[in-house]
Amino acid sequence: MFYLLSTVILVFSVMTITTPKVLRSAVYLLFVLIATAGLYFLLNYEFLAAVQITLYAGGIVVLIIFSILLTSHISHKLARPAPWKLWSAAISLIVGIPLVLWIILNHTFQQSANEVPVDMKLIGTQLLGTGKNGYVLPFELISILLLASMIVAIVIAKKDKEDKQHN
């Protein structure tokens, strides 16, 4: 199962960044995200998998697809990237991947064998807890961040009158 999901992830990741059509690339990303959610299931993090599917796959990708539809035509094909970009990407990959893999494979992890099931109640109490292992502060932070970004998004995307006259 893991190998199947990994293959899906890698193949569709590559296709996401190579397909010339923007809309398709978004759809491929959707597959990648769903496969990632599958990995979460494998790791027994059901809640996070559900969040991944609903929020990422359901929310963000839909948002992106909407914006694609707003800004370009479906049939529109992207031009081939400039050579210097290909070169620099190739350099990053050729240097980066072996480096990281080498580091990872050379490191011995102290694996822990005990298996603790993660239940929803634990997640809930820890997320809103203030004591040890409590995450209420980052939780509040992220809620403020979300609010701020929502307002920012509205302000930026709003058409103001001056722009209307220009366009």
Partner: peptide, 30 residues
């Protein structure tokens, strides 16, 4: 870890080669 690091570098490569701002956003998601 191998899968995730490959995915990471695919994202970076996508960030560098794609022309469209939205596909760059997709790479960031990766």
């Amino acid at each position: 870890l191998i899968v995730s690091s490959l995915m990471f570098f695919i994202g970076i490569a996508g960030f560098i080669i794609r022309q469209n701002l939205i596909t760059i956003l997709l790479s960031i998601e990766l």
